[in-house]
Design a protein around this nucleic acid. Structure first.
Lengths: 119, 119
DNA sequence: CATCTAATTTGACATCCATCTAGTCAGTGA
DNA sequence: TCACTGACTAGATGGATGTCAAATTAGATG
């Protein structure tokens, strides 16, 4: 649950897309994050978790809204986890997921535009 | 070049991911945008275009940095175009691409966090 | 221990996607 | 008109990915 080949947050990071010279490695890391976001089910899962009161959601609450089997939801949660977007924790019988706020903030900054510094 | 089945900007839009109830349709539209971003080559293309002086890049400048054939680059540019992220324009012999700033701004807002309004 | 439930893993399968080669279209200029 | 160049389209192919059924693991409880 906790030790997975997760995306290194120090790489897929920080500098806006409009900055020069995104390295191949940075691009690869970022692509991994966007691959995780490139699925409607995963987007809705992320939305469901992020919009929850308390900031966390049980898997049992995440299966109902979809016409998909448990294993499929589990798979999608794993992809989001490996992308460093959410984190999961078992408490008793249930597993609870939360978004990692830093991950979202990082992405927000990526799309920031450089304040139109007119030539 | 200009009339393609592009993502409708009015949908894949605006409200932060942490807002409740992302609809299935919105999720599908957003997923299309992220699919476009979910490739290292396309991320670097977008970065190359966005970081260019003058805000635009000729296809002829975008082929060199990659060890890929022209058609493949063309394909990636088409995907970015159909996702509403860039726009292309032919001027004489060459085709120039620019990023659509609104598209990036929209994405930036999507990942904005709701200022930690503690319960 | 036996059993029940929640969640994940495994393995299979159909579909999608990045890439290439070959061919085509658009614009320039002799 | 013909040839040349830049860019795109079409079709094919190998690899990645979403989904499910079946099996497995982790906790709770009798």
């Amino acid at each position: 649950m906790s030790k997975l080949p997760v995306v290194d947050a120090s790489l897929a990071c920080c500098a806006p897309l409009s900055d020069p010279a995104l390295s191949e490695q940075e691009a690869a890391e970022l692509a991994r994050v966007f691959k995780a976001l490139a699925d409607p089910v995963r987007l809705r899962l992320l939305n469901l978790i992020a919009s929850q009161e308390g900031g966390e959601a049980c898997v049992c609450d995440l299966t109902g809204p979809f016409e998909l089997t448990g294993p499929t939801i589990s798979h999608h949660l794993k992809v989001l986890r490996q992308a460093g977007l959410i984190t999961g924790e078992r408490r008793g019988t249930w597993v609870y997921y939360q978004v990692i706020p830093e991950a979202l903030t990082r992405l927000s900054g990526l799309f920031a535009l450089p304040a139109l510094t007119s030539a």
